[in-house]
Amino acid sequence: MIIETKRLSIRTFQEKDFADTLAIYKDNETCRYLLHDPWTSETAQDFFKVKISNNQLKQDQMLNLAVVSQDKVIGDLYVWYTDMRDTVELGYSFNRAVSGNGFATEALQELIHVLFEEIDIHRIQVNIDSRNSPSKKLCERLGMRKEGYFIADYWNKGEWTNSLVFGMLYSDFLKSVGPMNRSA
């Protein structure tokens, strides 16, 4: 799968992407709200091999996609099916050095377009730590609806955390982007 936008290429991970991907995941702040700790020299290769092997979206397999700008991986998009029919959950991580440039919005907008129009997904959801303000704002920019706020529902990194759940149907997507606002 290769997706092109005005500024980005979104594709499966390749061996050559290791250093750029490590730069994303070795950062403490980037990993603060993720379910794993920052990558270390001992763990990075194993984590990266999983990203390479997650190269197709299947009922039992997550899809990882590299977000590439000027031949450099600046982000990681991940998609997996939930237990509900034709419903997927999205996750994303970007190199903090590129934050504020609209890359996450552009990449996710186009991925959401592909999921709805080419893969015929019924519903997309995102589940985030409620303290993750940038991610909350991103979901809102994408036209997602806040559907739930759960108090102390997830044990992560030694503490109970609150979760926000955002959701979107195809009709929500069409309202949020319209034909003139598409990035590609």
Score class of each variant (00 low, 15 high):
residue 25 Y to L: 03
residue 34 L to H: 08
residue 175 K to I: 06
residue 151 I to Y: 12
residue 180 M to D: 12
residue 68 V to H: 00
residue 174 L to R: 14
residue 123 R to W: 14
residue 183 S to I: 10
residue 71 D to A: 11
residue 57 L to Y: 01
residue 138 L to Q: 05
residue 29 E to H: 04
residue 13 F to K: 09
residue 97 A to I: 00
residue 129 D to M: 10
residue 84 M to C: 02
residue 63 L to K: 04
residue 113 H to Y: 15
residue 177 V to C: 07
residue 137 K to M: 05
residue 183 S to G: 08
residue 67 V to M: 04
residue 74 I to A: 09
residue 151 I to V: 14
residue 156 N to A: 06
residue 62 M to S: 10
residue 169 L to Y: 12
residue 95 N to A: 14
residue 51 K to S: 01
residue 40 T to N: 00
residue 87 T to Q: 15
residue 38 P to N: 00
residue 96 R to N: 15
residue 124 I to C: 12
residue 105 T to H: 14
residue 44 A to S: 13
residue 132 N to P: 05
residue 53 S to Y: 12
residue 4 E to H: 14
residue 39 W to F: 01
residue 41 S to G: 04
residue 80 W to E: 06
residue 118 E to Y: 13
residue 15 E to Y: 09
residue 147 E to C: 04
residue 90 L to T: 09
residue 111 L to N: 06
residue 134 P to Y: 04
residue 179 P to K: 12
residue 128 I to W: 01
residue 76 D to P: 09
residue 119 I to D: 06
residue 63 L to V: 01
residue 120 D to I: 11
residue 168 M to T: 09
residue 31 C to H: 00
residue 23 A to S: 14
residue 92 Y to W: 10
residue 128 I to N: 11
residue 56 Q to T: 13
residue 1 M to G: 13
residue 99 S to W: 15
residue 54 N to W: 01
residue 64 N to T: 01
residue 160 W to R: 12
residue 176 S to Q: 12
residue 92 Y to F: 15
residue 12 T to E: 07
residue 68 V to W: 03
residue 89 E to L: 02
residue 113 H to D: 11
residue 116 F to V: 02
residue 87 T to H: 13
residue 46 D to F: 05
residue 87 T to V: 13
residue 161 T to Q: 10
residue 111 L to D: 03
residue 144 M to G: 08
residue 82 T to Y: 06
residue 79 V to F: 12
residue 27 D to F: 04
